[in-house]
């Protein structure tokens, strides 16, 4: 009985809070921050769509810069300034540059590449649209009467972030540095040229029967295999043009 009464009281309290919130903020009178958020969000979403649909690989990386920069502006609008500048530094500054280096080193075709999209594009589109519809419906239904209070001191200022990070999250922070060290060592080990090619164990039989045509060549004659890889990409480029 007392539990039910407490629950009813809590429910009444939340109802009062949400009604007052709904009265304080109108549905059809967006504030300037909301309009700015909406416009930047449209730009971000459009850039993301172009990133996943364009057939020019380098353009995809450059549109990714627009999407990530738009997200940094969204963080600024949400008063999370430290996260915004970290986003600019790490994503726009290093991750996209790394992706561009990867595109160059794998000899990605310049211009339109005809096989950028896989054959299961329509299945992927169906899955993505259904997931988007479900998520948007659930999220809008759940947070219909919830407002972020952006007035007063900024909730995500560098001071607040730093204090919480170095008072409450010190151990995960240090563990993260160990993870970065492990990633560094792993990337170096992976990208080093393997010296002992002959002592490596034999590849499985399916690779030897030629399920992918360049495998036997590249294993028996590595230099010719590389030359072959270089030879195919200009042909693909010309085919793309």
């Amino acid at each position: 009985m007392s539990l039910a009464a407490a629950a009813a009281t809590a429910h009444a309290t939340t109802t009062i809070t949400t009604t007052t919130a709904a009265e304080a903020h109108g549905f059809l009178s967006p504030t300037g921050v909301e309009i700015a958020f909406l416009l930047v969000g449209l730009v971000t979403f459009g850039a993301a769509l172009i990133t996943v649909t364009t057939r020019q690989l380098v353009h995809a990386a450059l549109w990714l810069v627009v999407a990530l920069g738009g997200l940094a502006v969204e963080y600024l609008l949400l008063t999370a300034e430290f996260i915004a500048w970290v986003q600019v530094l790490i994503y726009v500054g290093s991750v996209v540059v790394l992706l561009l280096f990867g595109l160059m080193l794998t000899k990605a075709p310049i211009g339109r590449s005809p096989d950028a999209d896989s054959g299961n594009r329509w299945v992927a589109l169906t899955v993505a649209v259904v997931a988007a519809a479900t998520l948007v419906w659930v999220v809008v239904d759940a947070f219909r009467t919830t407002w972020i209070d952006l007035d007063g001191p900024a909730a995500g200022s560098t001071r607040a972030t730093g204090e919480s990070l170095f008072q409450n999250w010190v151990l995960p922070f240090e563990a993260l540095s160990v993870l970065l060290l492990a990633a560094l060592v792993g990337a170096i080990v992976l990208s080093r040229k393997a010296k002992a090619e002959s002592s490596s164990p034999p590849v499985n039989s399916r690779a030897a029967t030629g399920s992918s045509p360049s495998v036997p060549d590249s294993r028996n004659h590595p230099i010719e295999g590389n030359g072959r890889g270089e030879g195919t990409s200009p042909a693909e480029q010309e085919g793309a043009r």
């Binding site: 993505a128 988007a132 407002w147």
Partner: peptide, 20 residues
């Protein structure tokens, strides 16, 4: 700011990445 704006934007971005 209405909380639905960032939530909807992040849902749409996530599904864009899923398609990709």
């Amino acid at each position: 700011m209405h909380l639905a704006y960032p939530a909807v934007l992040s849902a749409l971005l996530f599904c864009t990445g899923l398609y990709g």
